[in-house]
Design a protein around this nucleic acid. Structure first.
Lengths: 347, 347
DNA sequence: CTGAAAGCGCTTACAG
DNA sequence: CTGAAAGCGCTTACAG
């Protein structure tokens, strides 16, 4: 089966009627519509997307740009695949397909995005891994293509985004640690310019301040967001002359490497050092002692992300009224045993 | 900047000439070409893909279909993101863009693929997570769209594929364990119908046979391919009356849960039970004792996959001559300490 | 309710 | 070397 012309010939009616029947337009005889649908099904006809897109000016495809930078590849821990499920559950209601657009390592994300936008492969975009300063916001705003960011940025220009509640996490972690008697609390931060690192560290500083603890820059350890990075964080902490009694780790996987390194030195998390992880991950469940961390539903995050995006697209906006365009996504504390001791009572 | 028409008007030449200049056709005055390229750059003009595709009958996009089944989400461990890097390094040479097509959980992969093919969003496809019987091969063969599979299948119909050397891994693992005195060797297998599970278990049986060991079906434990699955495998093994002395795990993440469960019973891998893992993963490096496993370059696998695909596309085949269309991808043994003891010498 | 026709934005024979 | 025109496969006003 080639195109709509062949299908129309086969049915001995005009292509216009075939098109209307297939697209569920009114003013088509029910009998005719049935014949058309049956023939299309039988001959496996589906409209060529290029033809449709050209005519309608819309592709019915939404793009999710991911960086797959080496750092992310190591740690994203299928973050995106889970979010994707949530996105699709919304998009499928509108017959929108989701494609993931992986920006190659060796290509500049800005140039890559520019190309994707210009080619008009997608109707709307979701960008992720937002940087502190991220020119992609300006680009997308300028081209007027609907988009939403997974992650905030100084460059957001009042555009839509949704972001994890890093501030809430770090506040909760600091409160908890201070309540257990800790004053020297270290924190890990990503080595890249990804904005969440700044948000995380800023929240940490404010939380310390709130408790009247003086911030010591030496306690902010930059490392890759992977097991290896966690190992390195532990290594650096162990070398500090005035060693912290607690640490807050960003990214779930770091805990694995961190545990390993401190244990090599005979230091037990939850007894000799307090550890609070970030997002709950399957891996974390298998750490001993169990890691105190934060839970959230990435599927639901995807749903929200999709709805915010659609609320900004004229064709769908009325179905998603009153969406807040900038949302902080909450996480819930899951107390483990990795920070369950009172400072001073440790032997 | 809207379309080629506006650009042509701005330059006061015909759209035909603009198109030829932009597409690097010969027979364009160098002076004219420069003017066109400069104007396009300045005005940010890039050809609308729908227009091009419709005219040329090609989209210059390659699709990688991924299932993101719940099982995969948990364990794929960024397998795909790494392979993607290799794919892109080849495609980018031909100005082909790669998009990932995630099939939603609740949609039948066959129907999803059918839709993607019919819409002609991509010129060629890579499918993954091949099932033992996988109708997608027939579908793609019938529609004559170029494709290659990441994973073999009984349904391959002589189509192109590349697959990890499961047989080689399991042979090497069994040989090693037998050399250390083991005779009761268990193996884990995926709980789904993914073909690699069958290949793995069949290889295991033949390897045992080669050593004159009678195969005990009770030693093939089916479980999800995740940490949780590894935990469960250990749990089931511990319950066997005639407990195996060694186990071969499929999927890298299982080792984490496996270690945890046996250690809960005071059983130490590499001392009380021999463990051989599958693909080397960052996580595995942080297990103690270090896991014996197998290393391979997923980036290079992606390169090979891309080349096999292009060798089957008329427009590119002459640049990739003599490609073997069905390839077993090797893995290299990385000896750890998790199986480093002689049976009988354990205390 | 249906058909004939226009036109979306491109590329590419064909003339000149 | 350049321009005018056809046509890729659709959808959608417009007639009837």
């Amino acid at each position: 089966m080639k195109g709509i012309r062949q299908l129309a010939e086969h049915l001995d009616i005009s292509i216009g009627t075939v098109s209307r029947a297939l697209n569920g337009k009114p003013d088509v005889n029910e009998e005719t519509r049935k014949r058309v649908l049956a023939a299309a099904e039988q001959l496996g006809y589906v409209a060529n997307q290029s033809g449709r897109s050209l005519r309608q000016g819309t592709t019915n495809v939404i793009g999710l740009m991911i960086q797959s930078s080496r750092e992310t590849v190591e740690n994203s821990d299928n973050f995106f695949l889970t979010v994707t499920g949530g996105l699709q559950s919304v998009f499928s209601r509108h017959k929108l397909d989701l494609v993931m657009l992986p920006c190659p390592h060796d290509e500049d994300p800005y140039e890559y995005l520019k190309r994707m936008v210009a080619r008009r492969i997608v109707d709307a975009l979701i960008i992720s891994e937002t940087q502190r300063v991220d020119k992609r916001f300006d680009l997308l705003a300028k081209t007027k293509i609907p988009f939403v960011a997974l992650g905030r940025s100084l460059s957001d220009g009042n555009a839509s985004w949704i972001d994890l509640d890093f501030d809430g996490v770090v506040n909760s972690a600091v409160d908890r640690l201070v309540a257990h008697g800790h004053r020297r609390i270290a924190i890990s931060a990503p080595s890249s310019d990804i904005n969440l690192g700044f948000v995380f560290v800023e929240g940490y500083r404010r939380a310390l301040e709130r408790h009247g603890i003086i911030h010591d820059p030496a306690l902010v350890i930059r490392a890759k967001s992977s097991e290896q990075g966690g190992y390195q964080v532990a290594d650096e902490l162990l070398r500090l002359e005035d060693r912290p009694t607690a640490v807050i780790l960003i990214y779930e996987l770091m805990a694995i490497g961190f545990y390993r390194r401190v244990m090599e030195s005979g230091i037990i998390p939850g007894r000799d050092i307090a550890v609070v992880g970030f997002r709950e991950a399957p891996r974390a469940k298998f750490l001993q002692p169990p890691l105190t961390c934060f839970r959230t539903s990435l599927h639901d995050l995807g749903v929200e992300l999709a709805e915010i995006l659609l609320s900004g697209m004229p064709a769908y906006s009325e179905e998603y009224p009153g969406k807040t365009r900038q949302t902080i996504w909450p996480l819930e504390l899951m107390p483990g045993e990795s920070d369950a001791f009172e400072l001073g009572t440790k032997k």
